[in-house]
Design a protein around this nucleic acid. Structure first.
Length: 912
RNA sequence: GCGCGCUUAGCUCAGUGGUAGAGCACUUCCUUCACACGGAAGGGGUCGCAGGUUCGAAACCUGCAGCGCGCACCA
């Protein structure tokens, strides 16, 4: 580190050390190690995804935890990998195919299309992994996994087969959430309710048995009228009860004889008197609640839509072929023409949207695979009873609520990219899948009464030629929920599993608490017989500085790689962590990264300053030669170690970072380093060496405290400063990664070096004197560069070294100590614990400015005194308050009054 | 509708009963030999509102309001 640049340049440094760590296998976990285990599995990013700020937040936290654990002497496994992300990836490839070749997946066929997806995965799959490396993530890359690796796929199949054989997985024809764009079923979790503006349409229907009686029905979806198979009223509704059993003439579709349009009026408790007109049209094929009413009353189910959301022939001539929303407009027109539309009112209501495709989902009756969740009880109690902890713990309630109201999970997807369902049907039976593998058909398959012969196993049936495999694939989360153990070699009892399962921490966003976290817990109990992790840290969501969620469409998401290029990975990590308090959303501002860069630069220059003092690393501190400033900074270091360690133990990363910032910048650089110059610029060689020893002690500890947050710069400085030398390899000799995490200074150490807490107060008082002295200079409008003479009137003996420091910090030409000093009238002065400080510059003093300063001080003191006296004058206060607090107040009153008196005197002197 | 969270300096947020804090932004001064990605000094807040508990409340309790989120949902 001979020629140190003035400003820290991160790029080359980061490249160099990441390569070093990898070449030396620093991230590789040893399953046979005797050290205690610490493990964490990465939430696998989408294999073809790009790094965004959410990943930065998430993975920086995991890296901090991993690096801290290594320094604590743990055997650390941070297991990385990627997720095949069924819909997301398939949609990407489909889009590219359309753009580049103007083809659909059906043009290619299933097999060829899948080849393309794999090719896409090979091409883009490495990107996000490399981006994580740029960020400094210390993952064990030798164990990188992908959810579609052959071994992983076998786990998925095995789990399916086991649950099927247990009777927990079953197939059923049910109402599911259908996404007309992706053309697949979705789980309830993939549906997002959004308020939508629309209309409530009121139309009237004639009761066929009573030509004078009309009923008015309210609906938001007139296009589904052709699918209505009943009209329902509440049997307790006096307005309508007598009509139950009669029929109405349904107004749509056209060209149909009236008698064919007759649908019954039924009574069902579900109908709400209050809502709309109290008359409900029942469309069993297109609404979940209506489906249930249909089941209760054995109503026919008329599916009038195609899988892509267009209307089919059963919707009638005027609607067939139209998209569902065009059909709505046409249906309204028809109702108008028929003269039955009574009213249309603007209406806002919630509509379920497909999270992926961002279009309204269509409730649709189809044959799907469902899972009755296993191990629900254990999963619920482990969090309720704090065997697993959530941070922040309010998520425990959300989790509990979901598990209490848990619904079966629709696990089949009509996609091609994913784990194929390990189920075969004997040929000549009807095709059993919904529609996967074929272009959407126009026809509606009638329900079948034939029960097919089913083969469900990891292995295909021996006479495979006589069987057809189910064409559907599994929900992506049906593979992710096995992540904590399927990545460690399950179902074999591998050394890795034995050593590292259950994992220690999971770090993830609360948006996937149901998708992923809850399901992993259930899978953990079901297949490993134990919880998958002991702690779950839920990050906040990264927003822009206006509080908007970051998204591609808004274009408000900065590219982390660009930020790394401009500021360095350490700066990005620091800035993100500093502004990410536990469990709160993070308002991201590039200023934070700038702050991180500035901080790295400060750290760099503080070390540079030490280097410029020359000499070897000083290891021995001589207690006899320690100044009060030395003791002060050692005590501050002690407090910082404690504070930061505790913050990390409780996952308060922003507190930890802010503590480090304050300690290093304010306490060490602003005060200690400046004070140390009194010795370093002097000529006492022994004291000089001793001060350097203190500096080396502080810096070597500081670098270690910073390492989990700022891995690159700390590694560079650790070596550059020479702190790695003479260290055993496993304690930081080769890399700071394995240096020991600093411990608070113990009593022996404090005793030996005379680190008594009284030095904190003493030195704080000294620095207060300096601040006040500087203030005199400012208030008197004396330029900061001008050397001036101060006079100090101490109340007690002040050691010569302290006087040197005070003089230096005041940038004083001289500091005259005079216990009997009688200041001429109007001399600016300040009273402190250590004594009075004067700035005797007759003729130079700006009397007006000084008056203003004193007036202001007087006001402030008056206010403080009033407050304190008020309390002391309250008999209740004096009687009931703890004696210590009472004494504090009394002392405060005395001090304040003395100060006030002094200020008043000074004012008087100025007037005179 | 139910649940959760938030409301403190211009902005973003700390602050678990005892003199209101940090960073950024702002004002003024300073290129003094670690750092202008820097240093020094300073201005700025009746802690959302109303009650209550207490000698004492930003903090604890109750109610209200505003903002945000989650769950559920009536056509």
């Amino acid at each position: 580190m001979s020629e140190i640049p003035k400003a820290y340049e991160p790029q080359a440094v980061e490249e160099k050390w990441y390569q070093f760590w990898q070449e030396n296998s620093c991230f590789t976990a040893n399953a046979k190690s005797l050290k205690p285990a610490y493990s964490i599995v990465i939430p696998p990013p989408n294999v073809t995804g790009m790094l965004h700020m959410g990943h930065v937040l998430n993975n920086t936290i995991q890296d901090i935890l991993s690096r801290k654990a290594r320094m604590d002497g743990k055997e650390v496994l941070w297991l990385p990998g990627t997720d095949h992300a069924g819909i997301a990836t398939q949609v990407q490839v489909e889009r590219a195919l359309k753009k580049e070749e103007r083809k659909t997946k059906y043009d290619l066929g299933r097999e060829e299309f899948l080849k393309r997806v794999w090719a896409w995965k090979e091409k883009h799959g490495g990107i996000i992994i490399n981006q994580l490396k740029k960020l400094g993530c210390s993952c064990d890359w030798t164990r990188e996994r992908f959810t579609m690796d052959p071994e992983y796929s076998r786990c998925v199949q095995k789990v399916f087969v086991e649950l099927y054989k247990k009777g927990l997985i079953y197939r059923g024809k049910r109402m599911v959430n259908w996404c007309p764009v992706s053309q697949t079923a979705l789980s309830d979790e993939e549906v997002e309710m959004k308020p939508q503006k629309g209309f409530m349409y009121y139309f009237k229907v004639q009761v066929s048995e009573e030509s004078n009686t009309w009923l008015t029905i309210a609906t938001t979806r007139p296009e589904t009228i052709p699918g209505d198979t009943a009209v329902a009223v509440n049997p307790k509704d006096p307005r309508y009860a007598h009509l139950i059993g009669k029929h109405v003439i349904r107004p749509l579709p056209v060209h149909m004889p009236a008698e064919k349009k007759l649908i019954p009026i039924i009574g069902d408790e579900h109908v709400d008197f209050e809502f709309g007109t109290g008359v409900l049209k029942v469309t069993p094929a297109h609404d979940k609640a209506d489906f249930e009413i249909g089941q209760r009353h054995k109503l026919p189910i008329v599916d009038i839509m195609n899988p892509d959301g267009t209307m089919n022939d059963l919707a009638g001539e005027s609607l067939a072929g139209l998209d569902r929303f065009e059909a709505r407009d046409v249906a309204v027109e028809r109702l108008k023409e028929l003269g039955v539309l009574v009213e249309e009112k603007p209406y806002e209501h919630n509509v379920g949207f497909s999270q992926r495709a961002d279009v309204p989902i269509e409730p649709r009756l189809s044959e799907q695979w469902f899972l009755k969740y296993p191990a629900v009880k254990e999963s619920q109690s482990c969090v309720a009873e704090s065997r697993m902890k959530f941070h922040p713990d309010r998520w425990a309630k959300v989790y509990d609520h979901w598990l209490t109201n848990i619904q079966d999970w629709c696990i089949s997807r009509q996609l091609w990219w994913g784990h194929r369902i390990p189920v075969w049907y004997r040929k000549n039976d009807e095709a059993r899948s919904t529609n996967g593998g074929k272009p959407p058909s126009q026809s509606v398959r009638p329900p079948s009464s034939v029960v097919p012969e089913i083969w469900c196993d990891v292995q295909p049936p021996p006479d495979a030629e006589n069987w057809d495999q189910d064409s559907d694939v599994l929900d992506t989360w049906f593979s992710s929920w096995l992540w904590p153990f399927a990545t460690m070699g399950w179902p074999e009892q591998t050394d890795t599993l034995k050593k590292f399962y259950p994992t220690t921490d999971l770090v993830t966003g609360p948006d996937i608490i149901f998708f992923w976290v809850a399901r992993m817990i259930m899978a953990g109990y079901e297949f490993m017989g134990d919880l998958p992790f002991r702690n779950v840290y839920f990050t906040g969501i990264i927003r822009d500085k206006q509080g908007r969620k970051m998204s591609k469409t808004l274009g408000n998401s900065p590219d982390p790689l660009d930020l790394i290029a401009r500021y360095g990975a350490d700066a990005l990590r620091f800035g993100t962590m500093r502004s990410a308090p536990l469990g709160q959303d993070v308002l991201f501002d590039e200023k934070d990264v700038e702050l991180g860069r500035n901080f790295c630069n400060k750290l760099w220059n503080a070390c540079r300053f030490r280097q410029m003092q020359g000499g070897q690393v000083q290891e021995e501190i001589n207690p006899q030669l320690l100044s009060s400033d030395d003791k002060w900074i050692l005590l501050k270091l002690d407090a910082a170690i404690l504070e930061i360690t505790e913050a990390l133990n409780s996952y308060n990363f922003s507190t930890a970072v802010q503590g480090l910032y304050r300690f290093f910048w304010n306490e060490y650089c602003d005060w200690y380093v400046e004070a140390s110059k009194a010795v370093l610029h002097g000529d006492d060689a022994a004291r000089k060496a001793n001060t350097l020893a203190v500096i080396d002690f502080i810096l070597s500890h500081t670098l270690r405290l910073f390492h989990p947050f700022l891995p690159f710069i700390t590694e560079e400085l650790w070596h550059g400063m020479g702190y790695a030398e003479d260290m055993p390899d496993d304690q930081g000799g080769r890399t700071i990664m394995y240096a020991r995490w600093p411990k608070p200074l113990d009593e022996d150490f404090k005793g030996h070096y005379g680190l008594d807490d009284c030095y904190l107060d003493m030195v704080n008082a000294k620095y207060d004197l300096v601040t006040q002295g500087r203030n005199l200079r400012r208030a008197g409008n004396i330029s900061a560069g001008k050397k001036v003479k101060y006079i100090f009137k101490p109340v007690n003996f002040t050691p010569p070294n302290d006087l040197e420091v005070i003089k230096l910090l005041l940038n004083a030409e001289a500091l005259e100590v005079n216990e009997n000093y009688q200041a001429p009238k109007g001399t600016p002065a300040a009273r402190t614990q250590l004594g009075e400080i004067f700035l005797p510059l007759e003729g130079y003093v700006d009397v007006a400015a000084e008056k203003v300063r004193l007036k202001k001080e007087e006001e402030k003191l008056q206010g403080d005194i009033e407050k304190t006296e008020q309390k002391l004058g309250n008999p209740n206060f004096v009687q009931k308050v703890p004696p210590q607090v009472l004494a504090e107040h009394q002392q405060r009153a005395i001090d304040l009054k003395a100060k006030l008196e002094h200020v008043l005197e000074a004012l008087k002197a100025l007037e005179g």
